[in-house]
């Protein structure tokens, strides 16, 4: 089944995919054992897995006849840009507060 390429935001927007990622955050799982936890057809589960795979949220390894899914960090990296931005933002702001309070102390 073809899975369209979705970006990180669209990937995490779906509750089933979020739940799959939560399960995978504990341990790697085979597609079959993941599928057992969801009330949907096997092709539907495969489609979600492909979407997560395409967006870099999971990797898939074939071991014997089973396909194992493992959570991967790449998909979450889009968040990193925001986090880096705010890290600098707060550092700048807090230094400004420091200057204000230091000057205030000197005036006393």
């Amino acid at each position: 089944m073809r899975a369209q390429a979705l970006d990180a935001f669209q990937v995490i927007a779906d509750p089933s995919r979020r739940q799959m990622m939560v399960m995978l955050s504990k341990d790697s799982m085979t597609i079959n054992s993941l599928a057992q936890n969801f009330d949907m057809s096997r092709p539907a589960v495969s489609k979600h897995i492909k979407i997560m795979y395409n967006a870099g949220f999971i990797s898939i390894t074939d071991i014997g006849r089973e396909r194992y899914c493992t959570l991967k960090e790449d998909g979450f990296n889009e968040l990193q840009g925001f986090i880096n931005y705010f890290d600098k933002f707060w550092e700048r702001k807090l230094k400004k507060l420091e200057t204000i309070l230091n000057n205030k102390a000197k005036l006393k």
């Binding site: 927007a13 939560v22 968040l79 925001f82």
Partner: peptide, 28 residues
């Protein structure tokens, strides 16, 4: 400053904060 989530698909929803999956928050 924590709990970052990007939610492109939720724009059309109203009152999003309560809607957020706590599970995803844990994951992140």
């Amino acid at each position: 400053h924590s709990g970052f989530e990007l939610l492109r698909d939720l724009v059309s929803h109203s009152g999003g904060w309560a809607f957020l999956s706590t599970k995803l928050r844990d994951l992140l």
